[in-house]
Design a protein around this nucleic acid. Structure first.
Lengths: 220, 220
DNA sequence: GTCTATAGATGGATAGAC
DNA sequence: GTCTATCCATCTATAGAC
């Protein structure tokens, strides 16, 4: 664990003693991921982190700036990992990876981060939430993020040259919906609906199911 | 147009003169759908409706009660229409409709309501937003909503008896993700990414694409 | 750097006139 | 029923002691 900001110890005071800035970062990410952006105050964050109220403004400038920094870091990390996997898939297939490998590069990073024993479990929920509750700053980043998404769109277009471009873009839209729906609340609802037979903890099985479903959708 | 609350005239004063309570209802629904729950104040709502500040509390009790009433009415209307279409599909197929007809009963109502010339366009966005930003009251309703969703799950289980139940539930989860991702912001992003070739205004074409994608995902 | 105390702004709710 | 004026809680941000 080289990056202290990815730690998430339960002991708030210990967190604060080690590094107040990192404690604020971690507490803010966790509380926002669990309760939503607008429902968490600076007081909540500093109390959870075991630091004083002024820390947020001293270290980050403002509440919005803090949340933006969390968002920017996590999305950058996620995009980097996805791009890496897409690059590897291309290398494996002479520059033209099949649909399933492209989708795996998009699905796998957030799913593996979300596994129960992973430190980044909470970061994935933060990112998903930011997509629907984010501020104007975050939406601006998501617009630039289109250039990142374009690499996946281009790969899919190349993998399905016979398909109308319009169809490929719409199917990518459907695939994005599948990913964004992987929130705690939705997992709980599904678990309740299915009488408890769906276990989201088995991320490799879930990844396989998602790939099966999405690949079939791209095949026709 | 029998229900005055579904009207959405641009002239706020006219709205208020006709029926203040309906004006508040309509303005609140529209503002929340566009800007999010926490970003809209009672002052914003009453100003947009052209009524006085106290109207919200007089007619609805509180801001939360107002939003809950909008949520309850719209979800009830949507569930009723979906149930009706599922019932018709069952009637057409001797009580055992195929996957595509089940999915159509789930997809079609919100998509048709979301067509550009439809008064309910904004209601769909409200409902989608409530799912991720809703209060505790709304989440309680969504839990009862599981009984409504169970009818679709049961129909899918009957249509795919050879498939493990677990698979059917997960695929239903993926399908829900496709539906919930149909937000204005996501359509705009897709439009931008695709260079403008995706037109969400053609809801029948979008419905066909969604059904093709989801049905293929259920076929294997 | 860290903390307490507080300023300054906002928003939900309500009292009371009409 | 409708409105204005206002109360009161809450929150972000900051000043200033240490």
């Amino acid at each position: 664990m080289t990056d202290p900001l990815t730690q998430d110890p339960p002991d708030a005071s210990e967190e604060a003693e080690a590094a107040p800035k990192a404690a604020v970062f971690g507490a803010a990410e966790r509380l926002f991921a669990l309760h939503g952006f607008q429902n968490v105050s600076v007081r909540d964050i500093t109390a959870a982190a075991g630091v004083n109220l002024a820390s947020v403004n001293y270290h980050f400038g403002s509440k919005d700036a803090l949340l933006f920094e969390i968002f920017r870091r996590r999305t950058a990390e996620l995009n980097r990992e996805r791009a890496r996997m897409l690059h590897e898939a291309a290398a494996r297939h002479g520059g033209k990876p099949p649909v399933r490998d492209i989708l795996e590069a998009y699905f796998a990073p957030p799913l593996r981060w979300a596994s129960p024993d992973n430190d980044r479990r909470i970061s994935v929920q933060f990112i998903i939430r930011a997509r629907s509750e984010g501020t104007a700053d975050m939406r601006e980043v998501l617009k630039n993020d289109v250039s990142h998404l374009a690499r996946f769109a281009d790969a899919l277009l190349a993998a399905r040259p016979g398909l109308p471009k319009e169809d490929v873009y719409w199917r990518l839209h459907f695939v994005l919906g599948m990913v964004h729906n992987n929130r705690f609340a939705e997992f709980d609802r599904l678990h309740h609906l299915s009488g408890g037979i769906t276990r989201e903890g088995d991320v490799e099985a879930l990844l396989r199911r998602m790939l099966d479903f999405a690949e079939a959708g791209f095949s026709a």
